[in-house]
């Protein structure tokens, strides 16, 4: 059930580079939210914005919910002004969330940049430990690695500038591990990041015959399935149709996603 709740800001911390952590007291939504779901945040009205802003949930415990965000535009710029004790309106929990992990499959989490946030929430709630692969442009874009290590998860890093870990895309690191350790194993992929990464990871899952759950991000309007702005082409019962990323997603099985919109599933230079 979708709820509207006035959340009180409890912590608002810089996370390096353009990243921020926003922790809010929001008991009803925090109790209900599951990994992969998101909240729709109403940026303070002084910003004069028409739409809420969606954020995947990074942590949720004891009535408090956190999101990790990056300064990317006018909405997040206005959010910087939020201080401890301020209130914001949240709508949530929204979206379908990740499904329960398949019994017997080894969880492989693949994150691009701050796409690591919902995967951390998932790792916290998964019954069995898996492995995290995380790709980022530079070392400054690597987040939450200590959180994963505290959970006891092995982490493999790739940076495009080669400053940490494997130099290149996260799929290069993933492919090396799959070749060495993936043979004959039942894996289950969970991924969140740029479209190019999602398409590539989904392709690995499909090729191996494993399940791959992709967390899609599209420009959203209402967040509740009403406006039909954030649609994604999917296969359903053999036919291609639009799914609402906010309501029918944001988590989709790799086989169902049709990557034929211009610019989707391509790596930007």
């Amino acid at each position: 059930m979708i709820q509207l709740e006035t959340a009180v800001i409890r912590r608002h911390l810089p996370m390096g580079a353009d990243y921020r952590l926003l922790e809010m007291e929001t008991p009803r939504i925090s109790d209900a939210v599951r990994p992969g779901q998101f909240i729709h945040l109403l940026v303070p009205q002084s910003a004069g914005l028409t739409l809420r802003r969606p954020f995947s949930v990074f942590r949720s415990e004891s009535g408090r919910l956190s999101v990790l965000y990056k300064l990317v535009g006018v909405g997040t710029a206005a959010m910087q002004a939020l201080r401890e004790g301020d209130s914001v309106s949240l709508m949530g929990p929204l979206g379908n969330g990740f499904p329960a992990a398949a019994a017997g499959a080894f969880p492989v989490l693949v994150a691009g940049g701050y796409g690591v946030a919902p995967l951390y929430f998932l790792a916290q709630r998964l019954a069995s430990k898996g492995r995290l692969f995380v790709g980022a442009a530079t070392s400054a874009d690597l987040l939450c690695l200590d959180d994963f290590r505290e959970l006891g998860w092995p982490v493999t890093i790739a940076t495009q500038d080669g400053s940490v870990g494997v130099a290149g895309l996260v799929t290069a690191a993933l492919d090396a591990w799959l070749a060495a350790e993936g043979k004959g194993r039942s894996l289950e992929f969970f991924a969140c990041g740029p479209n190019g990464m999602l398409k590539a990871v989904g392709g690995r899952a499909i090729d191996r015959g494993d399940k791959g759950w992709l967390s899609l991000d599209r420009h959203m309007g209402c967040g509740a399935g009403a406006c039909l702005a954030c649609v994604q082409k999917v296969r359903k019962s053999g036919a291609e149709t639009w799914a609402r990323v906010c309501k029918d997603g944001p988590i989709f099985e790799a086989r169902d996603v049709v990557w034929d919109e211009p610019g989707l599933g391509e790596n930007k230079p």
Partner: peptide
């Protein structure tokens, strides 16, 4: 009716541009 391709929505100063296409 399938409507238009995406992007279908864009926030502008004081409002919203949409081209859902009557899906």
């Amino acid at each position: 009716w399938t409507g238009n391709r995406t992007p279908r929505l864009h926030e502008v100063t004081g409002g919203l541009l949409n081209a859902i296409g009557l899906q």
